[in-house]
Design a protein around this nucleic acid. Sequence first.
DNA 1: GGCATTTGTACACCGTAGATAGACAAACTG
DNA 2: CAGTTTGTCTATCTACGGTGTACAAATGCC
Lengths: 138, 138
Amino acid sequence: MYKCRVPRSHTLQIDLAANVPVYEQIANGLRAELVAGHFGPGDRLPTVRALAIDLGVHHNTVAQAYRQLAHEGWLELKRHRGAVVQERRHLPSRPDIPEKFTRPLRELLAKALADGLSRKLLIGELMDSVRRLQEGGL
Amino acid sequence: MYKCRVPRSHTLQIDLAANVPVYEQIANGLRAELVAGHFGPGDRLPTVRALAIDLGVHHNTVAQAYRQLAHEGWLELKRHRGAVVQERRHLPSRPDIPEKFTRPLRELLAKALADGLSRKLLIGELMDSVRRLQEGGL
DNA sequence: GGCATTTGTACACCGTAGATAGACAAACTG
DNA sequence: CAGTTTGTCTATCTACGGTGTACAAATGCC
């Protein structure tokens, strides 16, 4: 019995056609959930196989995502114990903001504008994010 | 003689170690410049070989980036005419905001937070972007 | 006008990474 | 104690990114 508020395909979506690896899509999606606090320390994520079936990929692919998150300190992976969410100490802030955030954000905005999304709409989305951040969420 | 305000390695940076393809990094960087209006219609970008040398990659890699941008309607690629910036009609806005923007933004923020960047700092960056967007820039 | 240079393209090649398949060892369940 | 569950390991296959190289055509210089 594990507590699994994990996204079935609704919140965690995989795009096999995307040029970003599936295991990284999974890790990114789960990391977002973790950062948002949707999981607390001690919570257990689904087994690699269960999630793999849900997503329609191989369990090794999910395992790779789990391993990456474990390596980042989000999960503890014990055999047959499943993936347990860990308390994660806050890292000291790094000064490489431009590379880690500003540039990707800029490129993301450029892509969105190029896709025809309006400035007004993007501003709205950004402001929503700001609000969520201010409230301690994501 | 081409008008080339193109980034030497300062504004257009390539990370060979990144897991995102170099040709896509180039395309993303140039698209950001184009969206920002740093190039006008008729301007000519550097030749594939010139930019390739600047970036330290093969000219075919740059050519692939140029082709992608041309396919998106940003550039016109004529043999021996170089890459000419085109007037680009605005596409009709698509309704798939979450997939194209919200989700990637959310994951980017999650990654930044996971890296130890503070909420306050991220909020500042987001607000900067909002301001730039409001001013018609990027 | 002719010729070397420039320039984008096409094609083949190689290395690597992503995804899968299948087997394995250990813990849990009854 | 036997069967099931579960994460891991190893091997294999495929696709893609990046490079090397040759090519065709337009440009520029004399």
